[in-house]
Amino acid sequence: MQSLLTPSGLSGRFSTGLRLLACVGLVALLTACGFRLKGQTPLPFNTLYTNIAENSAFGAQLRRSVMASSPETRFTNDVTQAQARLTELSNTQTLEEVSISVQGQVEEYELRIEFVFQLTDNQGHVILPPTTLVATREIPYDSGALQAKQGEIGALYIEMQQSLVDRIVRRMTAPEVRAAFENPEDLPVDESATKVPEQPQMGSGGAAPSILRMPNTNPSGAFY
């Protein structure tokens, strides 16, 4: 067995030590530059209030994603204790006909969610102005498999909600949001944002639009 005290053994240990030292130095450098593990992008605030109901599917998805991205951030139900406020302004779901056969039968529907929100600090400074996000999916229609299609619509709706949640989190963790939150002096103030917001009347986890209940005579295909 080769002794660790031989020149070759000492050389191996020295080489291993150098590699370890280089790795430590690289990690320190990346940390100093603001590098973080993929999936974690801390928000500039530690407490967040939202009027999106916690017991809704959308609200639960949002809370999980925010806390996964920013582990130090916690949601609070007391708006006076929140450093920032995420306000849902509207959340509209529609189901529209997009393809009609020569016989006048619906062949395809488009499921659409339009979500509007804004982000303010506890003084009402508008960190993110009213922002509209849209998610759409198309689904073929089969009058002979309505129950299966209803289940497919429900699954698509959940997928679309998660897509919107991911985009909301990306917006909130953007560098410009951090800069705006830390330097709000020149930002506009939304006076209504200093009041306790009402729970939104629609959206936030209501049932997906249903082709089983949608009237055939409804030209817009809208359903809430």
Rank of each mutant, 00 (worst) to 15 (best):
M1P: 01
P7Q: 14
S8G: 05
S8Y: 08
G9T: 04
G9V: 02
G9E: 05
G12P: 00
S15R: 08
G17F: 03
L20M: 06
A22G: 05
A22E: 07
C23N: 02
T31P: 04
G34T: 08
G39T: 12
T41W: 09
P42M: 04
F45W: 14
N46F: 11
Y49G: 13
N51T: 15
N51M: 14
I52K: 03
I52H: 09
N55K: 08
S56N: 14
G59Q: 12
G59V: 06
Q61H: 01
R63Q: 06
R63L: 11
M67V: 13
M67G: 10
A68T: 15
A68W: 13
S70G: 15
P71H: 09
R74G: 04
F75S: 12
N77L: 06
T80A: 06
Q83V: 04
R85D: 03
R85P: 12
L86I: 05
L86R: 01
L89Y: 02
L89Q: 09
T92E: 03
T92K: 03
L95P: 15
L95C: 13
E96H: 00
Q118C: 07
L119V: 11
T120W: 02
D121W: 05
N122Y: 01
N122W: 04
N122V: 03
G124T: 13
V134E: 01
T136G: 00
I139T: 06
I139G: 08
Y141M: 08
Y141C: 02
D142N: 14
L146E: 12
K149I: 11
A155P: 02
E159V: 02
E159P: 01
Q161F: 04
Q162R: 10
Q162I: 05
R170C: 02
T173I: 10
A174M: 05
A174L: 03
P175E: 14
P175H: 04
A179T: 01
F181I: 14
E182D: 04
E182N: 09
P188S: 08
S192Q: 09
P209L: 12
I211C: 00
I211S: 05
I211Y: 00
R213A: 05
P215H: 03
N216F: 00
